[in-house]
Design a protein around this nucleic acid. Structure first.
Lengths: 230, 230
DNA sequence: CGTCAGTTTGACACGAATCAAAGTGAGTGG
DNA sequence: CCACTCACTTTGATTCGTGTCAAACTGACG
């Protein structure tokens, strides 16, 4: 997706003019947690992470996955208290910004301010898709959608070859994303494997037939990611 | 919530300098639909609306509700093609903007650009809550959360007295929001009524015990809506 | 060799969907 | 003013999908 590449260039300018530090995090690290007040905002430079929320009794829901180019903690930075947690799925490299310089950014680099809004709108679009999935798709359809979705996301940042996707997630992650139990998730993934749509390896997933997954899920793929001219 | 009022004042400045027209819509009107390219962006001045997506076979999922002060169609405006539809739940008054003047806004009024990002972040936060609900709450908990959520939203724009909330929605809307069937939605709402948490009237809902609903749902209410200083 | 996280499988229970049908009330036309 | 319709709500019976429980399997790692 050329649109993303374009954006990435912009993003890099943003980074170089505003960054206050760089951060490396290991797999499993919790970067931000629900209820905390973070003075920082991050851009993910490399690696996979995910955002989640939990209910008081511990039930967990994964909200979305984060890939290079994504802003981490924008919400918290703008609103105040973090409403979700962020955890690393692989070693990460992050670019750190001071939260209070966001205003400055908007003042001095309106184009980049627009970019941030564009990113927020993209995130919104993904969340909309996830909501449709959780609300109205069956377990198999949800799983198909999720894998196709992650495949597209990975592909958009050059992390997936057309047929092979290394997803650093466990079935527990899949379960907490789809709103299913771990047992049923396993049975569901096996159904997809039975249809030769995927192959589940230890802690990863090979995508055999993206088009098949998308058709099963009734999902036509992400909207064009072309960024409007500024 | 005083924060919102504050924002509204900003919003009104925004409106006066950038609006290109005003629009009145009747209940049931579809303002924007999935797949269309809209040249406009709206601010809701009065009334209730909702956003939804559908699967190819017609299953519908309501994504969120819109109240006065909300931006309608930001996503579509920034990204291109609309990925969801918007429908009026009551007569609406909207303020219309040209989509292509959004860049101009960011350039000339960075503070307002920041406001838009803030609004987008708020929407994101709400969608996160909804995802947690659909993924990890039971039917009764979901219904309790939804009504408490709508109550808070209505209260934040002065539409609800502490104990009485007129929601212009049917159980069909509730079902499509909670990801449940209409029959089960009815049985679920009756359970809430049985616990004296709500009373369902024809096409509306009286909230008897917000705190009880929130506790049942394990939801502690929306984050502070205070807008950061610019 | 044992431990531990993750995956897999089968039996059973429960929550939600579906099917079917009736009740309610607002609006409409005779 | 009275059927009549239509959208919405309500209820009961039954089916189906998913959760829960229990246990075994696998491979990495110490």
């Amino acid at each position: 997706m050329p649109g993303f590449r374009e954006f990435e260039a912009q993003e890099l300018r943003f980074i170089s003019s505003f960054k206050t530090g760089e951060l490396v995090a290991e797999t499993g690290t919790t970067l931000l947690s629900e209820g905390s007040h973070s003075a920082h905002l991050y851009t993910l430079l490399s690696g996979w992470a995910f955002r989640y929320k939990t209910l008081p009794d511990g039930r967990r829901q994964i909200l979305n996955y984060m890939l290079p180019g994504d802003l981490v903690g924008l919400q918290g930075s703008v609103i105040g208290e973090m409403q979700h947690s962020v955890e690393a799925l692989s070693p990460l490299v992050l670019c750190v910004f001071q939260r209070d310089r966001l205003n400055e950014l908007f003042r001095n680099h309106p184009g980049l301010g627009f970019d941030i809004t564009w990113l927020a709108a993209q995130e919104e679009r993904m969340l909309d898709d996830h909501l449709l999935s959780l609300g109205r798709r069956t377990a198999v359809e949800r799983a198909a959608y999720l894998i196709a979705f992650l495949y597209h996301r990975a592909a958009s940042v050059g992390l997936a070859s057309p047929r092979n996707l290394y997803l650093p997630i466990t079935q527990m992650h899949v379960a907490d994303t789809l709103g299913l139990s771990i047992v049923h998730t396993n049975k569901t993934l096996r159904k997809l494997a039975g249809k030769s749509l995927i192959r589940w390896l230890d802690r990863s997933c090979e995508v055999l037939d993206v088009a098949g997954l998308m058709e099963l899920a009734g999902w036509s793929g992400p909207a064009e990611r072309r960024r409007p001219l500024i």
